[in-house]
Amino acid sequence: MEHSRGQATDDPDWIAAANQPELVEAIARVVALEGKYALLEPEQSTSCGSCVAAGHCGSREWGSAANRLIGRRFTLVNTDEFRVGERLVIGVSHRALLRASMTAYVLPLLIMLLVGIVAQSLAGDDVITMIATAIGLGIGLLAARGVAYILSATGQLAPYFLRRANRSATTCQITAA
């Protein structure tokens, strides 16, 4: 935040900027247009800068990073007359990303560990604990599915269109510290 540079905290511009939801930016390419929606494919985030080139070469062999990206395509309302092949900068709320990570990874683990600890304290046998832990993981994944459905239905995971990306822009963020 700008605050680290010692800017006055009573500056109205700074206060307005601080109140904006923090967005995580990413670049996605328009791959198809379907009515009022555009189908977008995110670019692979790498530290090598090869993501732009990878999008053009067409080498999408099975199991490659490019192939995985096909599974992550998403739709966006075509508000700005997007064209196929255009690269857009999209944003996702920082909080949404954190919520999604907690839901997908932490919630199932916590339920699994809770069930495992209870099973170990009651039975004291490794085989029974293993079975109980597997069941706990299943319950946790079902719980994660429910929470993810709520997050998705309330639009908390929806990406926003921010601007068109210029030709050289990449998702690679090499910070010059």
Binding site: G71, R72, F74, V92, T103, A104, Y105, A144
Partner: peptide, 10 residues
């Protein structure tokens, strides 16, 4: 479990 989460985190 959740395609939207996969799209965001995968």
């Amino acid at each position: 479990v959740s395609p939207p989460l996969f799209k965001m985190l995968g």
